[in-house]
Design a protein around this nucleic acid. Structure first.
Lengths: 146, 146
DNA sequence: ATTCTTGCAAAAGATTTGCAAACAA
DNA sequence: TTGTTTGCAAATCTTTTGCAAGAAT
């Protein structure tokens, strides 16, 4: 699906940036490329270290600014981790994550039916629901072996 | 329920502390009392300001340490807010929250059936689920009026 | 030309920590 | 007396920001 609508195409970055008055730069492309090539849900720090191998002079602040740009033009999503560093996800469709309380690794889950949630979890009256956030906390397979 | 099992009793603090080798102090009692008397889900900063009216020389670090002690002996729960300050909750039974994206206010929700969640949201194989976290994000009634 | 982006250093906000003195058990 | 708690300041960690110089449109 990611490829059908063209979101996976490198050119997509340029298009999306253009539509919000953003410029296309070397670092921006590298951040996006890293995100596409790396493991899922890296932190800003991890992205910084990864991109740095290609562009040793890039700064962490620039990575943050570029991640914000990607989020703003709808190419990525920021996933706050509760405690510790947020993670960035190229999957922008609505879905949930499991998170290992030991190592922080996040794994995508298939989206649950919002319908069911809406019936199951009653929002207070007068509260306008924007979206639900579901997280499965626990211990991942790797950490479980210890 | 909170009163039936005695968790609401002031003496509970002393008992619980004793069971984990903790001491009973003036500040600790004040933090606990504030938590019981204040609005639900205050932040550490809010608790600090509140307790300060009674004990003007208390420090923010002490409030943090005492909140940690309360959490450790099972009298309170820390609710990370994703971004911004965590909030503290005397309700230690399993339940969910709604959170206003404007003002950060949290409201208790009745607990949803974990059963349903467990079926709805499939954890990755090898992942040992500790618990689910469900948050309803949106706009609260007050903020909606603006 | 204009507007956006970069790197750097500094600032920010939330929370933790080291330590000597004060306190509870 | 022994172990815990306190206040203070300093440190941590993650993220943001101000700014002058450099790049993209």
């Amino acid at each position: 699906m990611t490829n059908e609508d063209g979101i996976g195409r490198p050119a997509m970055l340029r298009e999306r940036l253009g539509s919000v008055g953003g410029h296309m730069t070397r670092r921006r492309a590298a951040v996006y490329r890293f995100l596409r090539g790396a493991w899922p849900h890296p932190t800003a720090e991890e992205i910084y270290l990864g991109v740095k191998e290609e562009l040793p002079r890039i700064s962490l602040a620039t990575v943050y600014k570029n991640l914000e740009a990607l989020v703003n033009c709808g190419l990525a999503v920021k996933v706050p981790a509760g405690d510790g560093a947020a993670r960035y996800d190229l999957r922008t469709d609505h879905h949930y994550h499991s998170r290992c309380l030991q190592c922080g690794t996040m794994i995508d889950l298939e989206p649950a039916a919002e319908e069911i949630l809406r019936n199951m979890v009653k929002a207070p009256s007068g509260f306008e629901v924007s979206h639900y956030r579901v997280e499965v906390l626990g211990c991942c397979e790797e950490c479980g072996k210890r």
